[in-house]
Design a protein around this nucleic acid. Structure first.
Lengths: 255, 255
DNA sequence: ATTTTCAATTGAACATCGTTCTATTGATGG
DNA sequence: CCATCAATAGAACGATGTTCAATTGAAAAT
């Protein structure tokens, strides 16, 4: 929040900026729009500048020193709005559910950006500290502390965010259907004798097992699987919290 | 296995190949070695060709038509060896545990390649059908079928593979420590009043919550968190399998 | 009113990349 | 001995990320 490179001062824009008037926020949201539209692999800084009717160097001036800085800003923008979706009075298990459903919904709105979120999750820390705090608070209310808290936190974040990242990752590159064709070919060559269960699952489940299917731009929901995963994790944590008042090895806080 | 582009015939190599003798397998393993050494973002086909002392066009001849085909081949190579690590006589819960521990161990050996595995997981189908079959068979032995089977499968694959992908994703780009510095700066600016639990967790947990830490090239293990996640999922599935003989909505097979 | 400052932008330039195309080589099968 | 063809080389094309030396013109300082 404070490491914005001294760009947006209160003073009105000077120079040619008065005529064109480009801001850091506009650059970022234009980048998100382009990634949503054409896919992440088709995105380039030059295309972004072209779409904005501007020289490529402008991107560097507004956003930072590299393409990865742009990506980090994009990730922060997308995950920066989900702390609100939580009822602080609800039981801790419900709060966890709310927070992770909000995360999925947030990523759902920009599927092509999801690989960025996974990558930025650790190299920059999770972009949104409010979100971390909410998860830690819920687990803390559940009685987790020390190593048990850390493991529960990592299991939740890694498992659920990883699910979203993996299942949403490779956007169907807009127009060309070569992607779907390869999947179909791959599925057609499954040997019924060598892989009986896989083969039996295919006709019924279509490619829902292998890929996230897209139909006229809207994805066939993976909601059920995500919900199952969420329930398995939260129910499991709740059961562990009930079974032992002091969890795991209750080591003294030496800080 | 059979869509290898007619490269490796039984006949001995002709032309200059007799002098240099490059094979598809050598190209792939050289690529893996370079990604392991320099990181995924620093990898390029030209560098690969340079390292092999060969023209860039050779890569295309051996591997296929694009860089993504190389990546697909790499993913298939890495995940192609883990079907064996499983005792078919063990209970289904144990078999699941063995299979997913083997997956993590396999990715662990090539952390820089992990983003490729996540991406290829759906766009090409999981590279290794044996692996899918084992997971499906274990769940089937647990009594899962129909939608319940699909959801359990997706939850396991998405959650556990996603965990590995997310936690291992951004390789520390070999020499420059700018990465770690940014993380440290990010952590130093956590406001104790706004984020009390996050701040309290920091000194004890260091950056284990945020990042996969690297110390002289070896990673601080996330084993505990992964094991917690694995146990939560398998125990939860086992409990559901026990609680209802016929799971969820047992719809008739109409195929 | 003049000068200085400096946010904001331009355009050219560089090295590198993925990819394609047209030779060329030389062992092998006929 | 010849024709084939697997396997390579090398040049070329367009696009990309990034840097850098100008340039503009409104606001601040004088």
């Amino acid at each position: 929040m404070n490491d914005v490179p001294a760009t947006r001062s209160g003073r009105a824009p000077r120079g040619r900026a008065a005529a064109v008037g480009l801001s850091r926020e506009q650059v970022i949201s234009a980048a998100i729009a382009q990634i949503d539209a054409k896919g992440l692999s088709a995105f380039s800084l030059r295309e972004l500048a072209r779409g904005l009717g501007v020289s490529p160097a402008v991107i560097y001036w507004h956003v930072g020193g590299s393409k990865e800085d742009l990506f980090a800003a994009i990730a922060a923008t997308i995950t920066g709005q989900l702390a609100a979706a939580q009822d602080p009075l609800a039981p801790w298990t419900d709060r966890l559910r709310q927070v992770f459903l909000a995360y999925r919904a947030s990523v759902h709105r920009h599927p092509n950006v999801s690989p960025l979120l996974g990558a930025q999750m650790k190299s920059n820390g999770v972009a949104n500290l409010d979100w971390i705090e909410i998860v830690l608070a819920a687990l803390s209310d559940g009685g987790f502390q020390g190593d048990a808290l850390r493991n529960a936190f990592n299991a939740l974040i890694g498992g659920l965010c990883g699910f979203v990242t993996v299942e949403l990752a490779p956007a169907p590159s807009s127009e060309d259907g070569a992607w779907q064709d390869r999947v179909a070919a791959r599925m057609a060559e499954v040997d019924p004798e060598a892989y009986p269960l896989t083969h039996a699952a295919l006709p019924e489940l279509a490619n829902r097992i292998f890929v996230l299917r897209w139909q006229n731009g809207a994805q066939v929901p993976y909601d059920d699987s995500y919900t199952v995963l969420l329930d398995l994790l939260i129910d499991g944590l709740a059961a562990r919290a009930r079974s032992s008042a002091t969890l795991e090895t209750p080591e003294p806080l030496h800080g």
